[in-house]
């Protein structure tokens, strides 16, 4: 099991080279397997009902079919990323791209430690870091519309709004404090499309989080200051009954791109290949 001891073992140099090459091949395979281990699920085209829209806006926004990671990105996956791209390590990241609690639960630059098990979702990552990871694996972050469309599915039907079981689980999660050590990603009950953990594990970054046009101050949100937001005076909350969506909107609008929190992770998305859409 200990490959490292093989490397230092006194062997003929040619054999050592071959062994080294074999280990590299193995490691590349493992790293690739790690990056590809996340199954991507096709979310069929649908429409997203924005929580907030101006009076002029259509009630729903069409969303094209896309691919979404089955689960959030894990600590092990993020270790592989910062190992390969040093500028995203905790000790090297620019303060512009991540605040001081970036990867704060980790023990070291490349060591998540016991508080952040390999299979648990990576948290305390900034929007910049999440995006950089997604691009590194050849993907992107989902848009708000895509994420919310996916998250609107129930356990047993595409529209989860009246899925009592889902709502019960969701509200139970919202009421629970964030555990000190997060459980593994990908173990949640799959929804109608086969996606897991959209609800009940961590909050997730979206590409256009900074399109949420509330100030984060409740007294200002009912009628946005036209001085601060051009045109935003027209944007008001549409449906305040969807409490969970409201929470997500409030979170997004309160975040800056460099912020990190112990309950905020991400998952990746990808466009469907042109031919596979239908």
């Amino acid at each position: 099991m200990n490959h490292q001891s093989l490397l230092v073992h006194p062997l003929p140099s040619r054999l050592r080279l071959r062994l080294a090459a074999l280990i590299v091949a193995l490691a590349v395979t493992a790293a690739t397997a790690g990056a590809e281990a996340v199954r991507m699920v096709t979310i069929p085209a649908g429409s997203y009902v924005p929580l907030q829209r101006s009076e002029k806006d259509a009630p729903t926004v069409p969303v094209a079919a896309f691919l979404l990671d089955e689960r959030p990105v894990t600590n092990a996956e993020f270790v592989a990323f910062v190992t390969a791209v040093p500028k995203w390590r905790r000790s090297q990241v620019s303060p512009l791209f991540a605040d001081s609690s970036y990867l704060g639960q980790w023990v070291g630059d490349l060591d998540p430690g016991p508080g952040a098990p390999p299979d648990s979702p990576v948290v305390q990552v900034s929007w910049f870091a999440a995006r950089a990871y997604a691009h590194w694996v050849g993907k992107r972050l989902p848009t708000t519309a895509e994420w919310e469309l996916a998250a609107s599915a129930g356990y047993t039907r595409p529209d989860g709004r009246n899925d009592d079981e889902l709502n019960r689980d969701l509200y139970a999660w919202l009421a629970r404090p964030v555990p000190a050590v997060l459980p593994a990603a990908g173990r949640g009950r799959p929804d109608y499309h086969g996606v897991r953990d959209l609800h009940g594990l961590v909050w997730e970054w979206v590409e256009d989080f900074n399109s949420a046009m509330v100030t984060g101050e409740s007294r200002a949100d009912s009628g946005l200051d036209r001085n601060l937001f051009c045109g935003a005076g027209a944007v008001g909350a549409k449906d305040t009954t969807d409490y969970a969506a409201f929470m997500r909107g409030a979170l997004r609008s309160s975040l800056n791109a460099k912020n990190t929190t112990t309950s905020l992770g991400f998952r990746c998305a990808r466009d469907l290949p042109p031919a596979a859409g239908r």
């Binding site: 101006s54 929007w127 027209a234």
Partner: peptide
Amino acid sequence: ALLGVKYKQEADGAFSH
């Protein structure tokens, strides 16, 4: 995101920002 600017395109094509 770096400048702390939020923006969103509305259905009429204009941007709130």
